[in-house]
């Protein structure tokens, strides 16, 4: 067993339900797992198995109903909204859709990822955002609006936005689903490479088999239960 402080996430006896009354339906059943700091974990499973539900719970986007979730040492079950909001600032989210702000340039979108910390000067935010955009290979696109970027480029901006604040944990839900093969592996490479140099923990949901080889660990969900937990060599 890992020591608790090495674990970014520790989940014990997690159940989750959707709906109320007769429509109430259990989506997650007694989940137990921990995720080690700096690891690159892939979460797989068929459609409807509960992957997104797990991410939204770990990402403080949904309240924990039953069981215990410790994130960065904080218990999420029963935590107040302000605590959850503050915790979210230590996370990086990458969604299936890039979710960039259409009115902001690539640079401004990335700056939003830093500015949430409040105490950063304009100059520093600008420098850091430019630097990360260079790392994701968009040095020549920093002042473009999302409308003028390709799908792969937009998703790379989203990666830059998620990573620029040096998050402890990156949660990504099928970030490559909307991309063609080349762009997809580029984005995953970036996540893996930038994550390991910064010591970021990554939890990534995917159906994409090519990503599996890059994983430190693969969790498989089926019907709301973890059915397999492996570490490929």
């Amino acid at each position: 067993m890992e020591t608790p402080d090495r674990d970014v996430i520790e989940v014990r006896g997690l159940n989750h339900w959707f709906g109320i009354g007769d429509a109430r339906k259990q989506a997650l059943y007694d989940l137990n797992f921990a995720i080690e700091a700096g690891s690159f974990t892939v979460l797989m499973g068929p459609s409807g198995s509960g992957k997104t539900t797990v991410l939204t719970l770990l990402g403080c986007l949904r309240g924990v109903q039953d069981g215990s979730v410790r994130l960065l040492g904080e218990q999420l079950n029963g935590a107040r909204e302000t605590t959850l909001m503050t915790l979210r600032r230590h996370l990086g989210f990458i969604f299936q859709a890039h979710n960039l702000h259409e009115s902001l340039t690539a640079l401004q979108n990335v700056i939003m990822g830093i500015q949430v910390h409040g105490d950063v000067s304009d100059e520093l935010a600008h420098t850091a955002a430019t630097h990360v955009l260079k790392l994701v290979g968009l040095a020549d696109r920093i002042n473009y609006l999302p409308a003028n970027l390709s799908g792969g480029q937009k998703q790379r901006v989203a990666v830059a936005r998620a990573l620029v604040g040096n998050p402890a944990l990156v949660l990504a839900d099928e970030p490559t689903a909307a991309l063609d093969g080349d762009s997809a592996s580029e984005v995953v490479d970036l996540l893996k490479r930038l994550g390991s140099t910064r010591g970021t923990t990554t939890l990534l949901v995917t159906h994409d088999n090519r990503i599996l080889e890059r994983a430190d660990r693969i969790l498989v969900l089926e019907d709301g239960r973890i059915v397999s937990d492996t570490a490929p060599q």
Partner: peptide, 15 residues
């Protein structure tokens, strides 16, 4: 028109 963007900002930790 910007609910998605606002939701994204909320996810990022904006209050």
């Amino acid at each position: 028109d910007h609910l998605r963007e606002y939701a994204t900002f909320k996810a990022m930790g904006y209050g």
